[in-house]
Design a protein around this nucleic acid. Structure first.
Lengths: 145, 145
DNA sequence: GCGATAACGAGACTCAATCTCATTTCATGG
DNA sequence: CCATGAAATGAGATTGAGTCTCGTTATCGC
């Protein structure tokens, strides 16, 4: 199992290896993401950092997220409300997908090996290189059920 | 196989059955969608209608798309560029998903029974009602391969 | 036709996301 | 240890998809 601070050091290792300097904004965003389990939007990150007394420029937050995304260090999740959310991407490749509750809007994470296998077989059949996939289910969560 | 004008009459039947009046904007959007195979964004619809000499208000286009969506007459597709796209949803429930080419941005449609079965089994396992699902693959298309 | 009301549309508005550019910070070599 | 050039940052302007308002227009049951 890949832990939280492990992700953080993985991120630092990758970025240092790619020749990037360190910077305050980057550290703050990485710290925050490392400690959050659910996906956060850029605006939520901005608000959370300000609330923690570590205000950070909007442009920097988007820049950091873009950088992390380019290096496959975060996963971008879009559930149809026009807002992009981000969560740590773990090096092993294990990942999960999301169910969006249409009643309360809550985001529920799940994983399913059968689904992953089906997508793997599909990639082979299509004969195209598939680097990434995202599955979004819509329905109602246990609370709203 | 469900044809184009078939979708159009299905839409009219559903809306008439639900007690909606007809209106110019609605007809224009439905006509356009019925004739297009790929998913269109609201802005693309606005531009296409204006180009065809049938200019239609933006608010009306969004209203029509929302109405069609509420009645499962269109499928909303989001591929991560922050723009919602819409395409006719056929009554049988058969649908497809999309691969987005990261090089040229092209949208390629595909369907896969194995994937649908995996999602069906997953819904059962989760024990939550799953009304809808969307799968987006990212990679490179045949042209860019 | 007439009237109630649904449908429409011009344009103001919201807000996530992007862009600009001046300032600050880093890390390297002298 | 500090000068220096590049990278990183951030305040604020800008963009653009999407929403909202409200007065006007069209539909359809009577």
């Amino acid at each position: 199992m890949t832990g939280r601070s492990d992700w953080s050091s993985h991120v630092h290792a990758v970025l240092a290896g790619a020749g990037f300097r360190r910077g305050g904004a980057r550290e703050r965003v990485i710290d925050l993401l490392a400690g959050e389990s659910c996906a956060l939007s850029a605006v939520e990150i901005e608000d959370a950092l300000r609330a923690k007394g570590r205000p950070t420029g909007r442009a920097s937050i988007y820049r950091v997220l873009e950088l992390l995304g380019e290096h496959d260090l975060v996963e971008r999740v879009e559930v149809g409300d026009g807002v992009a959310r981000f969560e740590p991407a773990h090096p092993g490749g294990e990942h999960h997908h999301h169910l969006v509750c249409d009643r309360c809007g809550r985001l529920v994470a799940f994983d399913d090996p059968g689904l992953e296998r089906a997508i793997g077989r599909l990639s082979d059949r299509l004969g195209m290189r598939v680097d990434h996939h995202e599955v979004v289910l819509r329905g109602s969560c246990e609370t709203c059920g």
